[in-house]
Simulated scan of single mutants.
Amino acid sequence: MVAGYDRYFQITKSFRDEDLRADRQPDFTQIDIEMSFIDETDVRRLIDGMFQLLFKSILDIDIRLPIPAIAYDEAMARYGCDRPDLRFGAPLTDLSALLADSEVPFLREGAAKGAAIGLGVPEKGALTRARIEELARAAAAAGGTGFVWLRRAAGALSGPGAKAFKGAREGALIEALALADGDLAFVLAGENPHALREACGALRTRLGGELALAPAGKFALTWVVDFPLFQRDEEHGRFVAVHHPFTAPREEDLALLERDPARVKARAYDIVVNGSEIGGGSIRMHRREIQEAAFKAIDIDPEEARARFGFLLDGLSYGAPPHGGIALGLDRLVTLLTGETSIREVIAFPKTQRGNCLLTDAPAAVSAAQLEELGIALRPPPAPGGPASGS
């Protein structure tokens, strides 16, 4: 962009060192787009049109434009994740006020910390008691201190958690979770509201799959916007970039970069379809002084910034245009459009769960001559219980 290119796109093979999942491979195909003199609306409008064309031409499905957007904070509050599956309801509900004076200690204590959440799903007896408790126990272990579960039948609540919701509290819970007869309700409490929401979001997703809550053939598209620019790394006691350190902050948040980085929102956006992130991007920083302020917020001092990103800072000082873009996972998109559940089904020669290629047997052992040519020396791992190599 500094060199004067107005816009470009490329379809490229990418390599990423990530754990393998149904929607991840170590090598994948990416549609990469970058444009000058645009803002978030321009990028979203372009991708809206692309998705509308693809769904119509391939599946004969009409996508209404514009594709709706949900703020990150709302997505986390209602669905417990930043890539919500909107094909079904079952939102998370804050029950802190309802449980503030609960007779159950862990519910009352969680409510006092803003960490008491409920969700209800149409279940109609499909799950055994053992499976219900297994799901709830896993969610509580991930982000809570305890749980109760209940069913609504004949207008009343039953189950092991019913005694915690007697009298007026029973009706209040039914209303808060919009429970109908045959619905199953979970109430979880914890010590950390964010961790609990993520755990409940994972529970919601799992219930959606096991109970087939998403109608077959339905597609729910949404943009997720207004991500935080930074998040606190408690282990190292500093802020880190949520996406990458080149994402621009909202103009109205520039003054917060130095005094309150946690409140700065990013000009970033993800496109999510049926609970899967298909792509993401952002408007970039094009002014050197803002880029330097962002580096400072994540404890990159001027000397380190010069050593690592001097080329970028020099480029910005020459006068970079406002610019931004997005990268879309082509394999994920094809998986979605073909109705497959794993990108391994739409990739030629996919890797195994261990990252091996069955066709070429890669990765293979490297010869001593190759290592010497690259100036690489291998050191054996330390013996179990022994000191680390080089100590």
Rank of each mutant, 00 (worst) to 15 (best):
A248R: 14
D314W: 00
G110V: 03
A77L: 13
D39L: 07
L378F: 07
R250H: 15
G281H: 04
D226V: 07
D233C: 10
P160D: 09
R288Q: 12
N274D: 03
P321L: 08
A116V: 07
R152L: 05
E303I: 04
Y79S: 06
A241D: 13
R267L: 02
R16K: 11
E258C: 06
L177A: 03
P122D: 06
V346D: 03
P66H: 12
D101N: 14
L313D: 00
R7G: 03
L20Y: 07
D361K: 12
L313W: 00
L371I: 10
L203P: 02
E345D: 15
A111D: 02
K124I: 04
P84M: 00
A126S: 12
E292V: 05
V366H: 04
M1Y: 08
A90R: 02
A369Y: 06
G190Q: 04
N192E: 15
P68Y: 10
D270T: 00
T341N: 15
G386Y: 12
S282A: 13
L254A: 13
L46C: 11
R267D: 02
L188C: 11
Q370W: 01
D32R: 14
A266K: 00
S102L: 01
F230Y: 13
L359W: 13
V264F: 01
L98E: 07
G217W: 05
M285H: 10
Y318H: 13
D42Q: 05
P380N: 03
L53Y: 14
A212Q: 15
G118I: 01
D32A: 03
G182I: 09
A22C: 14
E18Y: 04
R131T: 15
G110Q: 01
W223I: 09
F88W: 04
P261K: 04
A365Q: 02
S14G: 11
L254V: 12
A248C: 12
L211H: 07
S391L: 12
R204I: 02
E277V: 00
L86T: 01
A153F: 09
P249K: 10
F9E: 01
R24I: 09
D299M: 11
T360Q: 10
R204C: 03
A199G: 06
S96V: 11
A241Q: 13
G80Q: 09
P380V: 02
Q52N: 13
G80M: 06
V334R: 09
P105M: 01
R238E: 14
R206D: 03
R284P: 02
I58M: 14
G190V: 04
A111E: 02
I283S: 05
F246D: 05
A255I: 06
A364G: 09
H323C: 10
T335I: 06
L92Y: 01
P245H: 15
A115M: 04
V43N: 12
Y72D: 05
F165W: 04
S389E: 14
G375S: 07
D361R: 13
M50L: 15
K265P: 02
I174Q: 08
V224C: 03
L328D: 09
G280M: 01
D62P: 04
L336G: 14
D301R: 01
R232S: 12
R287A: 09
L99Y: 00
